[in-house]
Computed example of a mutant assay.
Amino acid sequence: MMSVTGKAKDVAEAREALDGIFSAIAYLAGQGLPLRRREEKTSNLQRLLDQSERTCPALKTWRKRKQTFTSPEIQNEILELMASAIVRQIANSVREDVFAVMADETRDSAGTEQVAICLRSVNKQLEVEEQLIGLYSVESTTALVLSTVIKDALLRMELDLKQLRGQCYDGAANMSGKFKGVQALIKQEEPRAVFVHCTAHRLNLAVQDCMDGVRPLRDTIQETGRMIGFFRDSPKRLSCLIHFGADKSLRPLCPTRWTCSEPALASVINNYTAVLSSLEAIADDPSTRPDQASTASGHARRMQSFDFFFGLSLALHLLRMTTPVMHADNKTQSHISVSRWTKVSHTEA
């Protein structure tokens, strides 16, 4: 029969090994890295554990067991435990005071509608904190469904709706509708939850209306977006651009976030000569397909006009004035990573 001392030693070594596995998973998740690959032996988690074995003999001994608690199912369960611990910590930090909720829905690459919900509060040092509490899949984006999801998320965190003092959404009718929007449905239960149209969204709409309302700006930005896509769609054309002296590749132009378009326009105007020379070279190259050569020729003619250069310069000037406003609006936001697990793991073990 194993002695008490031997049993305690085995428990201590097992605890140390499991702590190493939890720490490895927390590190990878916090860095946004995938844990698994097609071949489990070459996954990021297994490679990280291989490195950890050098300083942790208990982990090396543990991984020789038949059950090592590193299967994909257990990895997912560990991640859920960490996420729950972080959410509980967030809930505890805001439960004693009033708070505001922010939500926005979007469709992911798989076509699934998801709602991102954040809490906004003020800590004891009077510092604003914005913390993501989760992504929730929804079957529809009606006001009733979205308001139910928000209230359910608060209920799961044991946050009283009576403590809600603010709502921040975009200007879509299902969110901001005066009578049947999400903000109106929540106000029926808590009238003190004041609705505020998202500042970043309003800024983006204002810039969009400004650009779309001026023909030279609108035409120049649309042409610039097509030209940037023309280069970025082909490694050969990007190589040609670098060959003519471009210091960096062209930045993509976001079709919806106008306040993020400054880097794209700046990359064109800072490499104006190289871009124009590349387009002319592509248009004159006999090996270029006729449709691509014609497109390059059209872009080159447009770049040689005063209207294009003036419109590009003016758009960049206007966007540079909105960028500080955008940064000022976002600077109080904080991001939650799984690294916060280390702050609560020992207290909740």
Rank of each mutant, 00 (worst) to 15 (best):
F99I: 10
V115K: 03
Q75R: 09
A91G: 13
G134F: 10
L144G: 04
E130Y: 07
E129T: 07
L18R: 14
S121L: 05
A143N: 06
S84E: 14
A103W: 00
G20Q: 14
A83E: 04
P72L: 05
Q114K: 09
I150V: 15
W62V: 08
V98I: 13
L49F: 06
T42V: 12
P57L: 03
E105T: 10
D108N: 08
R120Y: 09
R120E: 05
R88I: 08
S140Q: 11
D152W: 04
L135C: 11
A58S: 15
S121M: 05
L79W: 02
D152M: 08
Y136L: 01
A26D: 03
F69C: 02
A29D: 09
F99P: 02
E96D: 15
L144K: 15
A153G: 05
S84N: 11
P57F: 00
T106W: 08
V122I: 13
I117E: 01
R63A: 05
V122G: 03
G30K: 03
E77T: 12
Q89K: 14
Q125S: 10
R107N: 08
A26C: 11
A91K: 03
V101H: 06
L154I: 04
T61M: 10
S23Y: 05
A85S: 14
V128T: 15
T55A: 12
A110Q: 13
A91I: 10
V98M: 06
I86H: 00
L119G: 01
Y27F: 09
E105A: 15
Q89H: 11
R47F: 04
S93I: 05
E73L: 13
R107G: 04
A29G: 15
S93H: 07
N92F: 06
V122L: 05
V115C: 13
S93Y: 01
A26F: 09
K64T: 09
S109E: 12
L81T: 12
R88T: 15
T148F: 01
E39T: 13
Q46F: 12
E73N: 14
E139T: 15
E80K: 12
I78L: 09
V101D: 02
V149Y: 01
T70C: 10
I150G: 07
G20M: 10
I25A: 07
D152G: 05
S121H: 14
R95C: 11
I74P: 04
N92M: 10
S109P: 08
E80C: 09
L126Q: 11
E127L: 13
Q131T: 10
V115G: 03
Q46A: 03
R95F: 09
Y27R: 00
C56M: 13
K66P: 02
C118E: 01
S43N: 01
E96P: 06
C118I: 10
I117Y: 00
S137L: 06
A153K: 07
C56I: 10
E113P: 00
W62P: 00
N92G: 14
A83R: 07
